[in-house]
Design a binder for these strands. Sequence first.
DNA 1: CCGATCTATATCAGACCAATATAGATAGGG
DNA 2: CCCTATCTATATTGGTCTGATATAGATCGG
Lengths: 176, 176
Amino acid sequence: MDVRTICLGILTRGDATGYEIKNLFQHDGYQHFVEASFGSIYPALNRLCEEGLISVREEAQEKRPDRKVYSVTPAGRSAFLAFLLKPLPEDRHRSPFVFAMLFSDLLPPGRVSALLEDYINQTEAKLAQLDEGNTKHKSAGEEFANGFGRAIYEAALEFLKKQRPRFEIPEAVAAE
Amino acid sequence: MDVRTICLGILTRGDATGYEIKNLFQHDGYQHFVEASFGSIYPALNRLCEEGLISVREEAQEKRPDRKVYSVTPAGRSAFLAFLLKPLPEDRHRSPFVFAMLFSDLLPPGRVSALLEDYINQTEAKLAQLDEGNTKHKSAGEEFANGFGRAIYEAALEFLKKQRPRFEIPEAVAAE
DNA sequence: CCGATCTATATCAGACCAATATAGATAGGG
DNA sequence: CCCTATCTATATTGGTCTGATATAGATCGG
């Protein structure tokens, strides 16, 4: 699932600029499961244009760079559909946190419990973020993505909190 | 968390060849949370050598390429320790599956439920894989990584199965 | 006996990210 | 009121990473 496909899919839901696409990754169903940087979005949009899968219209703005608003073409729509019908690439989860925890025996106890608390806070923040856009109407897909995220983060949180005693600073050490 | 750091950490647990490092990603605590390809492992090991963080010894083998067994140096050990004490990069989870589900309204119902069932099977396979190495002795870190994976996959599985009715093929369509 | 899988290294094109550059607008705190 | 931070908006670049490919004999199952 390359950045070109991601952009194509997002534009299927409505016209947008590269900048707006990037911001979408913090909202709606996209959060936590899809991401891309400017350094790949802009080239992706250029190439999709060349391939005729999307089109641009430039909206001139005073004292600002022109907005380049992209729209899917019929060809783009069917290309995206074709992607959705092919076997999907597998998920990828990379966690520097879990990797670090594998080496908890090498670390001072204070560091380990700090890592754990930080990660708990991050997870709580992500859960809160999912609840933010909770009032507005959601499509079936958005509701699925939201619910899936919530299910995972809640389970993670429960597990992490249960681990606290295991990685607590021993009183003897804390007293030093 | 680049591949160099990952390799360095793994070698902290014992000497290994590039090939063995790659295989480790399917085992123990590394599975599902860390990954790297040969195309980045071999250059990473070369550079770690240049930097003096690891060392090599070549074991000649008949009728096979020499094994290049890598070991951490004291400098490497403290460099890895320093990494663990710095703020960690954030987790990243990318899911083509969730992305595809966001567009479930564009797909024929049969395709959506097939996606869901495939993903359920994949998740069950991952859970089974976690239980595989369950007999052998595990370090505190490995136990944490294993438990964390299990907590997440079990919650995901529960959620996914609950979603089945929502994305079932309508009987009218199935009968066609 | 043949194909598949395993051991083991290595390279390369293409994809991608993080950082940086540009540049004026707007908003908030002191 | 000014200064800093953040926002809108595009773009490039260096360095990193993946996926595919190449090589080559060993071993194992059917």
